[in-house]
Design a protein around this nucleic acid. Structure first.
Lengths: 340, 340
DNA sequence: TGCTGTTGCGCAAGCGTTTGCGTTCATATT
DNA sequence: AATATGAACGCAAACGCTTGCGCAACAGCA
C-alpha cells in the first residue's frame, strides 16, 4: 500500500500530528524536524489522503467547474484559463460537463458537488432554480457568461454594446436588410441571446429600419446550426444583404452556407460574428472580439479571493470586460443588385 | 449544516448502517424501509460525503483526466466524450490541464491524484518517466493519442497510414516538392510527430523524391505556429508546391500565411491537414479525418471496464480507429509555373 | 416441536487526517 | 532561586462514512 502519515511519523520518530503540522507549514515544529520529515515524506512517496484531510478539516481544496460544452472553443478557452489559476493556487478542479439536458438536470438535482468542493464556477450562468440549488451548497459562487444572478460573482462583457457595434457597422455600410442568426433556443436560460437580440432590434429601430421576423433564424451556437440558419434566411422572400451572427461558429456556418449557394462574401452578403474565435482570422471574419481567456482567469481569481478572505464582503456582483469590433474581410457595402 | 447520515438515520428510526446500505442499493434492507429512507434523504437534501465514503471504502468514484491543453479543439472534443462516459457511469472527473512544462512537472512529481482517483486517463501518452509515476499510483491507466506504453490501455489511430494517404494524395496529383509542417518540438515526448514524419519520408522515398530538409518546418500544433512555419517554407530557395500539415490548426495557419503572401490555394500551393477539425469543412481544407470523440469515449469505456472487473486481464494494449482522407478544395495538381 | 436457513437490522471498528488541549523542557524574568 | 513564558511536541477526539460480524425474528422442513 502507499505510505500513510503514521508511516512517516514512525520513520521520523515523531507523532502523526507533528508530521501533519510539518508538511503543511504550520507552526509548532522546529526547522530541523520539519526538514527531516519533509525528506522522509518525499522519500516514502507520501502524499496526504485528500479524503482524510478534507474529512478532518472540512476543506476540500477542490473547485467544481460546470461547463455546458467543454468541446466548444469558447468554453474550452475559458476553462483552460480558469484551471490555470486554480491549480496555481493549489486547488484541484472537478469538471462537470453538462452537455445534455438530462445530465444537466441530474447534476442540479443530485448535486454531486455537495461536500466535495470549496467553491463552484459555472462557465454559463445557471437559471434561477439551478442557482438556488447551487446556493444551497453554502460555498462561494462565480460565473462567466450570462448576466447577473444573486449570490454569484459574474464576469462578462457588455453584450449590448458589442452587438450594437456590430450591427451599426452593417448599417453604416449601407445595409438595410440585416439578418440575425441567434442561439436563443435550447434548454439554457441565459440572458445573452436576448440581450443581443434587443440590441439588434434597437439599432435597427434607431436606423429607421423596420424589423422583419423572416430575417431572424436560430443557429444553436454551432457551425451546423449556423449553416442551417443561413440557408433559412436565404430562402426568405427578400433575403438579407448582411447578417449578424451571435457567435463566430454560427458565422462560419453561415459562410459555408453562402459558399454552397455560390454567393460571394462580402460582395453578395456581409457577415459579422461575435467572439473572435481563434480561427476567425483565418477565414477573415469580421467580428466583435471579447477577451475570452481573461474572463475565465478573472472569474477564477475572484473566487479564490473569496476563499482566502471568507469574512470579506463578496466582491462586486459583476465585472465587465471590454469588447471591440475587429474589421476583416466579410463585410462591405451592399452590392447594388443585391444577393442572387 | 448540511444533513449527515446520522440525521437521516435518526429521522427514519434506523441505524446509519441501514441508511448507508439502503441508499447504495446494498442487500440487507427491506423494500419498505429502503423507500422510506430514500424519501427522507431527498427531503433532507442528503448527499453522502465523498470524502468520508471514500475514506471508509477506499473507492473514490473519481477519475483523473490529464490534458495537455483543454482549449484545443482536439483535446476538448476528446475530453467532452470521455467525460460523458464517466459521468454516465457515476464517476466524477478531476481535471488536470498541463499547459506549461512547469505545471506538467509539478503534476508528475507531486502526483496530487494519489489516493484521490480510481483510475487515470491521459489524453496524450506521457513519456516513460511520467508513465512510471502514474503506474506507481496502482490504478488502471489509459491514454488516447501517442503510441503504446506499458501499463496503459491506449486507443488511437494509425498515424502512419493516415500520413501516407495524405502525402500519397499529393504525390498522385503530381507534386514533387512537398513540404511538411510538423509539431515535433516542445516538451512532450510522444510518438505521433515522429511516426508521421517517418511516413512522410517513406512516401517521398517510394516516389523517388529526394528529401529536402528545407521543406520541413515546425508549427507547434498551433495556428500561429503553422503560419510561421509556412512563411518559413515559402522563404526556401525552392518553395514547396504542396504541404502536408500534421494538424488542421497548423494547416489553417498555413492557409493564412499563403493568403498574406497573395498565393492562391490550391492553384499555387496545395495544403492538406490532419484531424478534420470542425471548421475544416468551412475553409474547404483537404484533410485526413480521424474519429476524435469516439477515441475519448472508447478510452473511457475501456477504463471503466477495468474498474468493473478488476480481476480481468487488462484489455489489449492498443485500439486502432479508422482514418480516412477527406478531399476538399485545398489540393490540386501543381501549377505549371509553380509558386510565386 | 426442534432444527436449520434466511432476512433485516444494529454494533462497533476502522479509514487517514486535523486540531484543541495538555505536557515537557529550555530560556527569560524578577 | 523561584517563577513565568514560550516553543516543540504528543494525546486523543473528532470528521462521516462503510462493512464484517452478531443477533433476533421468522419461515421452512422433517
Amino acid at each position: 500500500m502507499t505510505a500513510s502519515i503514521t508511516d512517516v511519523a514512525r520513520a521520523a520518530g515523531v507523532s502523526a500530528s507533528t508530521v501533519s503540522r510539518a508538511l503543511r507549514g504550520r507552526p509548532g515544529v522546529s526547522e530541523e524536524v520539519r526538514a527531516q520529515i519533509a525528506a522522509l515524506a518525499s522519500q516514502l512517496g507520501y502524499t496526504a489522503s485528500r479524503s482524510a484531510s478534507s474529512l478532518a478539516s472540512g476543506r476540500t481544496y477542490t473547485i467544481g467547474v460546470v461547463v455546458p460544452y467543454v468541446g466548444r472553443w469558447f468554453f474550452g478557452t475559458v476553462l483552460d484559463a480558469a484551471e490555470r489559476e486554480f491549480s496555481a493556487a493549489g486547488y484541484d478542479v472537478l469538471l462537470y460537463n453538462l452537455g445534455s439536458p438530462e445530465t444537466r438536470k441530474r447534476f442540479f438535482t443530485k448535486l454531486p458537488v455537495r461536500k466535495r468542493v470549496d467553491a463552484v464556477l459555472s462557465l454559463l450562468i445557471p437559471d434561477e432554480a439551478e442557482s438556488a440549488a447551487l446556493r444551497s451548497l453554502g460555498v462561494p459562487l462565480a460565473s462567466t457568461v450570462g448576466g447577473a444572478r444573486p449570490g454569484f460573482t459574474v464576469v462578462g462583457i457588455d453584450d449590448r454594446a458589442g452587438t450594437e457595434s456590430a450591427v451599426r457597422h452593417l448599417v453604416n455600410l449601407g445595409h438595410r436588410r440585416i439578418g440575425m442568426i441567434s442561439g436563443s433556443s435550447g434548454p439554457l436560460h441565459w440572458t445573452t441571446p436576448v440581450e443581443r437580440r434587443n440590441a439588434y432590434l434597437d439599432v435597427l429601430a434607431d436606423a429607421g429600419i423596420a424589423h422583419d421576423p423572416a430575417l431572424e433564424a436560430d443557429g444553436d451556437y454551432t457551425v451546423d446550426g449556423g449553416e442551417r440558419a443561413m440557408t433559412e434566411l436565404l430562402a426568405a422572400a427578400r433575403p438579407p444583404t448582411a447578417v449578424f451572427a451571435q457567435s463566430d461558429e454560427m458565422a462560419m456556418g453561415a459562410l459555408r452556407a453562402l459558399r454552397r449557394h455560390r454567393l460571394k462574401v462580402p460582395d453578395d452578403v456581409s457577415v459579422v460574428g461575435f467572439d473572435d474565435h481563434e480561427l476567425s482570422d483565418v477565414v477573415g471574419l469580421t467580428t466583435v472580439a471579447q477577451p475570452v481567456a481573461r474572463q475565465g482567469a478573472e472569474a477564477a481569481r475572484l473566487l479564490l479571493r473569496q476563499l482566502d478572505e471568507p469574512e470579506a464582503d463578496p466582491p462586486a456582483g459583476q465585472v465587465r470586460m471590454p469588447i471591440r469590433l475587429v474589421l476583416r474581410e466579410t463585410t462591405a457595402p451592399p452590392s447594388p443588385r443585391g444577393p442572387q
